[in-house]
Write a protein that binds this DNA or RNA. Structure first.
Lengths: 159, 159
DNA sequence: CGGATGTCAGTCTAACTGAGATTT
DNA sequence: CAAATCTCAGTTAGACTGACATCC
């Protein structure tokens, strides 16, 4: 009996969702490893990037903007706060809320983590040309936009 | 303060790996929910599809062919065996091994789970035409093949 | 002996659930 | 009152680790 190689059945490989989750799994593994090596994890860059781009926000808003659960935002903000990468202050206008603000150290950290993710793209998508990477991104973006449009949207206040 | 919408920062959305993991996360969520509704989970269809396409195999080979850990194969085979979807018999030629064989009920189950994943494709990739879905699959397949070629390959015996 | 196999008992992350206290 | 916010405890699936006995 010959040893089995890493060959998945056609019934699975024929499906885009299989390819998607396999490639994403590899991506996630690589990212987690490099983030861990830098003392961070995936949740951190999500929060820092959102804070840097959109400014201070409540934890609930952060969760909505980063597709993170409220309870996970709480834990991740605790971690980031312990390293003084974000500040948690009370919201004077709404005392239920904390206002989370990124610090200068947080922006430096974000730049570092952003470099990690940039390096990841080259390693992950090495076999694809720049044009092909753009095509892949375009297709995925349309799918993601469609998915987001399908969401319950219970918290959206357009305008 | 306006409520935040589901808008991720451009620093993330510009990266193919972010799009990939977001779409894959949505795919995984949908699949897990539908599998759970059918009393199954992701590991089950992987094993059943591999057994149906490549025939009976040892648990170690199944793990290699489906990118599953040996210990997870053991647990999943237990679950499938409890429903008589696979049979576990001793390998006379190598008494370390179990030979796992799919049953008629297992093939019926596979057909059912395959329908679920087929339906998933339509729901996930609705905004893409058939041509675009094929293009997406082609790009992802090349990335996945490249990744597999980069693996340690300690268990590969070509020929 | 080394190496492969199957099993078991864990860990870990991401994601999620439910409850509770507080505030609007 | 309902609803939102924050926090905490616990759960789940998937992936993975280390150990162990068995067998090639």
């Amino acid at each position: 009996m010959t040893a089995a190689e890493y060959v998945a059945p056609a019934l699975l490989t024929a499906k885009p969702s299989w390819l998607l989750t396999q490639v994403a799994g590899h991506s996630h593994r690589l990212l987690a490893a490099r983030m861990a090596a830098a003392g961070a994890r995936g949740y951190h860059i999500r929060l820092l990037a959102s804070l840097a781009e959109f400014g201070p926000a409540s934890q609930a808003d952060l969760g909505r903007r980063t597709a993170m659960d409220r309870s996970d935002v709480t834990a991740a903000v605790n971690e980031l706060g312990a390293d003084d990468l974000v500040e948690r202050t009370a919201d004077a206008d709404d005392r239920r809320r904390n206002v989370i603000t990124i610090t200068a150290a947080g922006r430096a950290r974000l730049a570092q983590l952003d470099e990690i993710t940039n390096g990841l793209q080259d390693d992950l998508f090495a076999p694809l040309s720049a044009t092909e990477r753009a095509a892949l991104a375009s297709l995925l973006r349309r799918v993601l936009d469609y998915q987001n449009g399908q969401l319950p949207q219970e918290a959206q206040h357009p305008g």
